[in-house]
Amino acid sequence: MVDPGHGGDDGGAKGPRGLKEKAAALEIGQAVAAKLEAAGFEAVFTRDDDTFIPLWDRARAANAQGADLFISLHLNAARTRAARGSEVYFLSLGKGDDDEVVAAENAGAGTAPTSADSVVASILDDLAQKAFLQDSERLAVAIQGQLNRLAGIKERGVKQAPFIVLRGAAMPAVLVEVAFISNPKEEEKLKDAAFRAKVADAITRGVRRYFAQANGSVRRRTVAGPG
């Protein structure tokens, strides 16, 4: 499941020259899906146009599709324009490594479910992803390792954070911050189809490496919901 971040009224971050995160994330997502398909995977989108999808619903869509992996694509932003590089996150059920990034990416969550059934479902969501934390970390490491090879992209490492979009995914799930849209040089790279193709290649190589290391042992587990 390829999840281009943001969409619709939720534009995400904006670059100094006007590039919107939601647009860049969708273009990267389309490139990633094409590379995954070429490598023999089936890629399904949470969104394939400029549509807002609540964060709470994205992992559930992946569950409904029976996806083996969930990859959420985003662009980072910082107050200083000098910040650069890529980083890959997997879920933290506690405090994360970067509160500023968490606040930015969780901003489009919408209203959290509050009904009794929804509260039970939310608890099951946490349990679902908890069962996959080690696999999610391995996937994050595999993808970050390939992104590190991109020329001009600084390594920022693998981190954990309580991203709402990763909760409830009954499969290994990661959030990729491809580059800093707030950095003018990286913003220009993000506008370049050739660079986006390199990013997509790196993510696809990371996915292939993950499955190769798992030696075919990775299987999506069924997590029963309420009722």
Rank of each mutant, 00 (worst) to 15 (best):
E42P: 01
S115K: 03
E100K: 14
K198F: 04
P162Q: 10
A116Q: 13
A161H: 05
L133E: 03
R156V: 10
H74V: 06
Q134Y: 10
P226I: 12
V178T: 14
Q134L: 07
G216P: 01
Y89L: 01
A140L: 01
R156Y: 05
A25L: 05
D68H: 05
A131H: 08
A103Q: 10
R219W: 00
E186P: 07
A142V: 04
G110K: 00
L19V: 11
L26P: 10
A107Y: 06
A107R: 14
A43H: 05
V199C: 02
G225I: 10
A116I: 08
E37T: 15
L93H: 03
V176L: 09
A151Y: 04
E100N: 10
G11P: 06
T80W: 09
F132G: 08
A34L: 13
V178N: 07
R79L: 10
P162D: 11
A170I: 01
F90L: 01
T204M: 07
A212E: 15
E37A: 14
V102L: 12
V158D: 04
D49G: 15
D201G: 00
H74F: 04
A197W: 00
F211L: 14
D117G: 15
D50F: 07
R205C: 00
L93K: 06
Q160F: 00
G29L: 08
R208F: 00
A77H: 03
A31L: 05
Q144H: 11
P16R: 02
E177M: 12
Q134S: 15
A109L: 06
V176H: 09
G96C: 03
N63Q: 08
P113T: 06
D57M: 06
L139M: 03
G225H: 01
A83W: 10
G110F: 03
A59W: 06
F180G: 04
D9Q: 14
H74D: 12
R196G: 06
G145F: 05
A24G: 15
L55N: 04
K189Q: 15
S92Q: 04
A131S: 13
E186S: 05
A128W: 06
S86K: 03
G11R: 06
N106A: 08
H74G: 11
D68Q: 09
S115P: 05
K95I: 05
A107V: 10
T114K: 13
D97H: 02
S118A: 15
K14F: 02
A161N: 09
V44A: 14
F45I: 13
R149V: 09
G8C: 08
A197F: 02
L55I: 12
D68K: 03
N215M: 11
S86A: 15
R221I: 08
A103R: 10
P162I: 02
Q144K: 07
K14E: 15
K189P: 01
A103K: 13
A140F: 02
S86L: 04
A13K: 00
E187M: 07
V120H: 08
V120G: 03
G8R: 09
G66C: 11
A61G: 13
N106T: 07
D201P: 00
H74I: 04
R219D: 01
V44D: 12
V218G: 02
G8L: 04
D49T: 15
A31E: 14
T111Y: 11
G85K: 03
D10K: 09
A202S: 05
A103V: 04
A194F: 02
A62Q: 06
R149Q: 15
A61Y: 10
R167W: 04
Q213S: 08
S118L: 11
G40I: 12
A142P: 05
I153H: 03
A224Y: 07
